[in-house]
Design a protein around this nucleic acid. Structure first.
Lengths: 127, 127
DNA sequence: ATATCATTTGGAGTCAACTCCAAGTCAATA
DNA sequence: TATTGACTTGGAGTTGACTCCAAATGATAT
């Protein structure tokens, strides 16, 4: 797969794919004789994983450490597990913050709706 | 309340509080005769709201527009409601991304645990 | 009276994560 | 054969959201 195909498939710009490679996130991306990237199955799996984690807000630095350890094989499993657990905790925290904001937004939107629909007359939102 | 008290109460640095004010997020923060901020109830409510939204990842720009419209009063209610709805949608998207990553992390962590506890022998994680 | 301290300001600096640019290579098409 | 178009690189620029700095002010403690 060319970079443009992978870019479309995972909705990441080509610049981002090259950037990730440049910083060492993906090693061993296959190339043809002209030096052009020819992503294989394994590369795609790694990209898909990083994309998923990045979408959730996991930091590049953590992913970078994880991906580099992954290259090094079995002996790094313990640390890799720790990294995943750390990131899991962070995502649970984010989840909480988002839920708190969503509750608040839902409440406020309902309030605005009640006013628009005439169920409430006095417009007394205080932020 | 002084800026240092508000800073502690809401876990925001004084720099951040001043920065928010500088970009126009909070107007009318009361001052004493020496020009020192003396946050009142209303200011605190606004800060708490912004803090909650920011923790969830709502962008400054959206909050800025909302807060400025709020100052302008009733006539801006329709647009304000739209902003809240837009941000709600964004947070729901984030929630999905986080849930997807969490599922994946949970699965992988379980896999690592099974290996450590000896339930599984062949260590075959593929990212 | 002097020092300490919390505050103020405008503006510069930082950081993460891209994003863009210019100059170059190569294969395929008009 | 000339050009088009997708790709390459190193490195510079951008964006969002702070974070830091230096100089100044006024209140309080020694």
């Amino acid at each position: 797969m060319t970079i443009s195909e992978v870019s479309k498939k995972y909705n990441l710009t080509q610049d981002t794919l090259r950037y990730y490679e440049k910083i060492g996130m993906f090693s061993n991306v296959p190339r043809n004789k002209n030096g052009i990237r020819n992503y294989d199955e394994n590369s795609c799996r790694r990209i898909e994983f990083v994309k998923c984690m990045r979408d959730a807000g996991v930091e590049i630095e953590a992913l970078l450490e994880y991906m580099k350890l992954f290259e090094k094989g079995k002996s790094t499993a313990k640390r890799r597990k720790e990294i995943l657990e750390e990131q899991r905790e962070k995502l649970l925290e984010k989840q909480k913050s988002i839920n708190a904001s969503l509750e608040r937004l839902d409440y406020k939107i309902k309030l605005y709706n009640d006013i628009v629909s005439g169920k409430k007359k006095d417009f007394t939102e205080t932020i």
